[in-house]
């Protein structure tokens, strides 16, 4: 195919039926009824082990001052809904930050401690805890103003073919939702359950870990945890999921 032909094909692909906002359903919709019940049950959803660990870290002193709770008193009230507004543009730096990024920023700038590092158990725990405080609340992430260029970059990422298998996110997660990919059912590919406990991982993982698995699946570059590419994609997915309930810690296959 010529370069012009490929450009035309890419344009057609972008036009090819993206799912309408009112069609998009949470990831848990594609679980068995038993797994849906297990996700809801705090005593049977293993993700809550990380939530409990995060809750403990949130108020632990260990010589660290201030602790999280010294600024965020009564987190069940003060941080309710906070996670539903991430990722967002950090006003001071102009950078897009997700929940993990904001927690690390507090850790480094305010607590003067070394960053936990993406995918560390401590950061997963704190992220899961803060996300759990917004459970059931509608996702409300902005794609306007300072967020707009990041949203556009995420949308472009979502719609472009990549990897040796030459697939775009939209081809499966809009066009083939409900179909079987081996034994798995394709979902709308939104991140409202993350960090999630995945059976395949036998542990809790971040959305970026899940995105890296998708990249590997199409034999594409796996971008770094917290990379600009995945942050922009996370924003686009969050806007796609606008008004859907937060599910973290989700349970996923």
């Amino acid at each position: 195919m010529t370069a012009a032909g490929r450009a035309l094909a890419a344009a057609l692909l972008a036009l090819a039926g993206a799912a309408r906002a009112d069609e998009i359903k949470p990831g848990s919709t594609f679980l068995s009824p038993e797994m849906q019940r297990q996700q809801q049950d705090q005593s049977r959803n293993p993700g809550y082990l990380w939530v409990e660990q995060g809750e403990e870290l949130f108020s632990r002193r260990d010589g660290v001052s201030p602790t999280c709770i010294s600024c965020h008193a009564d987190p069940k009230q003060s941080l309710r809904g906070a996670a539903a507004r991430y990722p967002q543009v950090d006003a001071a730096s102009g950078k897009l930050v997700n929940l993990e990024g904001r927690i690390e920023q507090c850790r480094v700038d305010r607590q003067k401690q070394p960053a936990f590092g993406y995918e560390s158990q401590d950061l997963l725990g704190l992220t899961a805890y803060v996300a759990s405080l917004s459970k059931g609340m509608p996702l409300s992430v902005s794609a306007e103003g300072a967020a707009k260029p990041f949203y556009e970059a995420g949308k472009a990422f979502y719609e472009r073919r990549q990897g040796q298998l030459n697939l775009a996110c939209t081809q499966c997660h809009d066009g083939l939702v409900g179909q079987k990919l081996r034994g798995d059912t394709i979902s709308y590919g939104i991140g409202t359950g993350y960090p999630a406990y995945r059976l395949e991982w036998n542990g809790l993982g971040s959305l970026h870990r899940r995105l890296r698995a998708c990249s590997l699946g199409v034999r594409a570059t796996q971008f770094d945890y917290g990379s600009d590419d995945y942050l922009a994609l996370e924003l686009y997915l969050a806007v796609r999921a606008r008004d859907l309930p937060m599910e973290a810690p989700g349970l996923r296959r």
Binding site: A3, G163, A220
Partner: peptide, 13 residues
């Protein structure tokens, strides 16, 4: 096919 592909993982490039 090897041309016209984007962001191919190093192992498959």
């Amino acid at each position: 096919r090897i041309e016209g592909l984007r962001d191919v993982a190093p192992a498959f490039r």
